[in-house]
Amino acid sequence: MSSNAPTAKHDKANVADSKTTEQPLSQDKKPAALEEDDEFEDFPVEDWTEEETQIPNGNAHLWEESWDDDDTNEDFAVQLRAELKKLGK
């Protein structure tokens, strides 16, 4: 099994402004199985109190805002470094 075997698959969705889209949308093909959007069901009750919501335990830390990875010894950085070194930079 070789990886350079011909691939018959065409791209099935259209991302018009992606610079790396190598294969534009083939007109006769629709995106693979785009299911119906999930319906947001009606609530059977009208109201509830704040105690019954997320607010009482609202201070949970939900988001990470500083995630920059300064590690130059992780695999990706090491490989990148090796590659760029070859440029003599």
Binding site: P44, W48, T53, Q54
Partner: peptide
Amino acid sequence: AWDHCSTDQLYYKQRRL
């Protein structure tokens, strides 16, 4: 919407969306 949605397990689907 998330903060004010009821945490009742009946509304799991709404909260997930």
